[in-house]
């Protein structure tokens, strides 16, 4: 085990785990070992945990502010609205934050190959297309951390490559940290620390 890799015993025995923006973290484990739970705890959409999660010295509970300004999350199940189009699903988030212009969103959709589908309803899309929509939506807000829960599980190599490049660029622009859970594909980002659950 390298120095940057913490063993499964370490993560639970340690009193405090400190994650810093501008750093990339990987949570690695087999299915059912609590990878999504950890991200949900961090995002506060699951509060069934003991202990505390502190952002910049403040313990938040149910903070909408955190969700709109500090942490962005690409959920494993995407949490898209089936009755809205690709464009509307992205806009419903961007209208809240006003983070990107329509042109910037269009450009992103073009880059990930979804521009032609922007008016299609989510329910008409493939899983991969939905995953890409969720990733674009997650970029429509300022953040200090980007949480990705199995982000590439339904994407082909080409799309993974394109999206990785977009994400890296956005992380750099926002000087944000990345927290990824994955079963594989751990080579896509350079991680400062890896957690084995």
């Amino acid at each position: 085990m390298s120095e940057s890799e913490i063993s499964d015993s370490d993560i639970y025995l340690k009193e405090t785990i400190r994650l810093e923006s501008n750093n990339n973290y990987l949570f690695k484990a087999n299915s059912g070992n609590g990878k999504s739970s950890i991200l949900n705890f961090i995002y506060q959409c699951n509060q069934n945990y003991n202990g505390s999660i502190i952002y910049d010295g403040i313990e938040y509970k149910n903070s909408i502010d955190i969700r709109n300004n500090y942490i962005s999350y690409v959920f494993q199940d995407f949490k898209l609205f089936n009755n809205l189009s690709v464009w509307d699903n992205i806009k419903i988030k961007n209208n809240l934050t006003s983070h990107k212009t329509d042109n910037e969103i269009s450009k992103l959709l073009k880059e990930i190959g979804l521009h032609e589908k922007k008016n299609s309803l989510i329910k008409e899309l493939s899983i991969g297309q939905r995953q890409r929509t969720a990733i674009v939506r997650a970029l429509c807000q300022p953040f200090k951390f980007l949480l990705l829960d199995e982000p590439f599980s339904n994407l082909d190599e080409d799309n993974i490559s394109i999206i990785t490049e977009i994400l890296n660029k956005e992380l750099k622009n926002q000087k944000a940290g990345l927290i990824v859970t994955t079963l594989n594909n751990e080579y896509l980002f350079s991680y400062n620390k890896k957690f084995n659950l």
Binding site: N68, Y73, K79, L80, T97, R137, Q141
Partner: peptide
């Protein structure tokens, strides 16, 4: 699901 998703993406 719609209500929960809205809350999860930042709607209060």
């Amino acid at each position: 699901t719609v209500l929960i998703n809205l809350y999860n993406i930042g709607y209060n």
